[in-house]
Design a protein around this nucleic acid. Structure first.
Lengths: 193, 193
DNA sequence: TGCTTAAACTAACGTTCGTTAGCAAAGATA
DNA sequence: TATCTTTGCTAACGAACGTTAGTTTAAGCA
């Protein structure tokens, strides 16, 4: 869907995603946002309640996508190695298909105010726990090396959440392709076997 | 060195590192910074030229540390696997020993203005090239899997630069210890051999 | 004691911030 | 045609922003 066919409200949310990512939430003014759309700053308030509402929309929409995609791919799978691979590729697809929004999710969430901030942290922790459990399963099954699960989980997420810093969805590599390659990298490492 | 024994100028730089990391550069006001020190905002200008100068100091000091530590550990080593391991552990030590500053380096550099911004990008690209060369060497030597070097470099840096999001230098694990564990993770991956 | 200097202060500058109030235009609906 | 709703506008609010000017304070030194 091109940006002209979106409702004004959707258009505002989309441009906000882009600006919040490029300049950061605090450094993006409502006048910047309005100018990028082609209206006056005050006119934004015919469609939205506040600047922070825009940030909340982005953060919680992406959080929901992470959960949804995770549930979708885990359904029915029991093999620990495959469960982990599916979780990694699902997460990667969400990130790579929502570069602006996921970038804001990763870097701008701290500008949320209460109670959104606590809710955000709780959801993130719950999501991270799922990955810790996958790692535990893999270790207990003797498939993964005996690593500290919370340490390994942090490294995995660092790799995944860094995607928006370098990936461009320009046709060279599809989200599915990099998802597979990242899963390979996390499972195999750099060394030749 | 405790914060009270620093010169005022050093103290300002140190508190700025911390605030820029916690709240972001744009969301940190000079009045925030002054308040955290216990003086008036205008008094800061007896010691510094501008807010942006503080950001420049942080970014370029850390950049220099990355280069220095890299040069120090590469000196004399020729084995590709060891060269890569040393580069990774050196980088990790710099990050883990400068959590506030490296966090600002990773996340707030975009608020630099020209010409500092271009200079920053150039230095970062030069540093990244060193890692790409190490990966190339490892592949040519048959030690590393045949991965795309620029892709692998991005994944490596994502892992390393995510350290400030989770590591606390509180005595549980020293910078050297996590450096070794991260190198293991990058080289070996999660799978049991 | 008088002089110099560093480092703080108060006051204020002009600008930008997010947001509100009130109004105008335009299209949909009756 | 008359009315309502949506979506924009101009004007402006009070607050906060980075920064400058000018002044005071206090310590070090001749």
């Amino acid at each position: 869907m091109s940006i002209e066919t979106l409702s004004r409200k959707d258009q505002i949310n989309q441009v906000a995603q882009n600006l919040f990512r490029e300049k950061g939430y605090s450094a993006t003014s409502m006048r910047d946002l309005a100018k990028a759309i082609g209206i006056e700053a005050a006119s934004l308030y015919s469609h939205i309640k506040s600047k922070e509402e825009l940030l909340q929309n982005i953060c919680f929409r992406i959080a929901a996508e992470f959960f949804d995609e995770y549930d979708r791919v885990q359904n029915g799978t029991t093999d620990p190695k495959l469960r982990f691979r599916h979780a990694v590729t699902a997460h990667t697809r969400v990130v790579a298909s929502n570069l602006d929004a996921s970038s804001v999710f990763f870097n701008e969430w701290r500008h949320l105010n209460e109670p959104s901030l606590s809710e955000f942290k709780a959801q993130r922790a719950a999501y991270e726990d799922r990955f810790k459990n996958l790692l535990r399963e893999g270790i207990e099954a003797g498939v993964f090396r005996k690593v500290q699960v919370s340490f390994a989980m942090r490294l995995v997420f660092s790799t995944l959440n860094g995607i928006p810093t370098w990936y461009r969805n320009d046709g060279a590599l599809s989200p599915d392709q990099i998802a597979d390659q990242i899963a390979d990298f996390l499972l195999e490492g750099l060394l030749k076997k």
